[in-house]
Amino acid sequence: MSIPTVPVDGVPDPLPQGVIVLDVREDIEWVHGHIDGAVHIPLSQLTSRTGDLPEGQLLVVCKIGGRSAQATMYLTAQGFQAVNLDGGMLDWASAGRPMVSETGQPPLVV
C-alpha cells in the first residue's frame, strides 16, 4: 500500500482553509514546538481517539516522518483523507515555517 506523502515545499504557506495538521508526536516533543493550530494526538492514542479528529484533509506530522507515515496508513485505511509530511517537523522548521511553543521559549523540534 502506498502512503500519500508530500514534502514541505509541496505544502502551501499559509495552509489552505480546511487542512488540519495532526501532530502524532509525544507530549514532550509537542510542548517544545509545534505548528500553530495543530491537533495533537500521540500515535499511541490514535486508534482510540479518531473520533477527536475534525473533518477535512489531514496533514500528518511527527519529527521526521516515520510515525506520521504509520498514522497516515492507518487513517487512510479508516477512510480519512490523510497525507504524511515527508521529513516531518525537522524539515518544517528547516524551511522556516512558523511554529509555536508551550514552554515560553522559542519553538524547537526535539
Rank of each mutant, 00 (worst) to 15 (best):
1 M>S: 15
2 S>D: 15
2 S>T: 13
3 I>M: 07
3 I>H: 13
4 P>C: 07
4 P>V: 06
5 T>E: 14
5 T>Q: 05
6 V>S: 09
8 V>A: 10
8 V>H: 12
9 D>P: 13
9 D>G: 12
10 G>V: 07
11 V>A: 02
11 V>D: 00
12 P>H: 04
13 D>C: 06
14 P>C: 08
14 P>L: 09
17 Q>T: 04
17 Q>A: 09
24 V>A: 06
28 I>L: 05
30 W>D: 10
30 W>F: 13
30 W>Q: 02
31 V>H: 00
31 V>E: 12
31 V>I: 13
32 H>N: 07
33 G>H: 06
35 I>S: 08
36 D>Y: 00
37 G>C: 14
37 G>A: 15
38 A>K: 01
39 V>R: 05
39 V>F: 02
39 V>L: 07
40 H>D: 01
40 H>R: 14
40 H>L: 10
40 H>A: 13
41 I>P: 02
41 I>R: 00
42 P>C: 07
44 S>F: 04
47 T>L: 01
47 T>Q: 02
47 T>M: 00
48 S>D: 15
49 R>P: 02
49 R>N: 08
50 T>Y: 06
50 T>C: 15
51 G>N: 14
51 G>L: 03
52 D>M: 01
54 P>K: 06
54 P>H: 09
56 G>L: 02
58 L>R: 11
58 L>H: 09
60 V>Q: 04
61 V>N: 14
61 V>G: 08
61 V>H: 12
64 I>L: 12
64 I>N: 03
67 R>Q: 14
70 Q>V: 03
71 A>F: 12
72 T>A: 07
72 T>E: 13
73 M>A: 13
76 T>M: 09
77 A>E: 14
79 G>K: 11
82 A>S: 04
82 A>P: 04
82 A>W: 06
84 N>P: 09
85 L>Q: 01
85 L>V: 12
87 G>L: 06
87 G>S: 12
87 G>F: 03
88 G>R: 10
90 L>F: 04
90 L>C: 04
92 W>E: 11
94 S>N: 15
94 S>T: 08
95 A>S: 15
96 G>H: 01
96 G>Q: 09
97 R>Y: 05
97 R>W: 03
98 P>L: 06
98 P>T: 03
99 M>E: 11
100 V>T: 15
100 V>Q: 08
102 E>L: 12
102 E>W: 01
102 E>Q: 15
103 T>V: 04
103 T>S: 12
104 G>N: 06
105 Q>T: 07
105 Q>S: 02
106 P>E: 09
107 P>S: 05
109 V>S: 11
109 V>N: 11
110 V>A: 10
110 V>P: 12
110 V>H: 05
